[in-house]
Design a protein around this nucleic acid. Structure first.
Length: 103
DNA sequence: CATTTGACTTGTG
DNA sequence: CCACAAGCCAAAT
């Protein structure tokens, strides 16, 4: 069965361990789709509600959440990560510590 | 087939 | 650190 790019990306995201995060660019690269960071965001946007995919473990290359700081989605994502002990400093994650790039 | 769009990234000032 | 520009590329229109 030929996996669609969307499925590859979801699979990669599903493999991100709790307490870690990954960036759009990194996820795309790990899915074998370099330079498709934007596509990652697009696919996540299509993610069905209630999906088991840990979409919140994906942030941008700046170590920040790609949503307006005031938005509900931003706060929800930040909370979910903090619960997994991902530390935020000035609304930013230290990727040197929390970025996941494989096993 | 041309254009727009987007949960991005990197460089510059 | 913030703003803006350019680069990038698959999907949707």
């Amino acid at each position: 069965m030929t996996p669609t790019n969307r499925e590859r990306i979801w699979q990669v995201i599903d493999a991100i361990p709790a307490g870690k995060v990954s960036t759009y660019g990194t996820v795309a690269a790990m899915a074998g789709l370099p330079r498709q960071a934007r596509a990652v965001g697009k696919y996540l946007a299509e993610l069905p509600v209630g999906s088991k995919i840990p979409w919140y473990r994906v942030i941008n290359a700046q170590g920040k959440i790609s949503f307006p700081v005031a938005s509900t989605r931003f706060l929800k994502q930040k909370q979910l990560l903090e619960v997994e002990s991902v530390r935020f400093t000035n609304n930013k994650v230290n990727l040197k510590v929390f970025l996941w790039q494989g096993d």
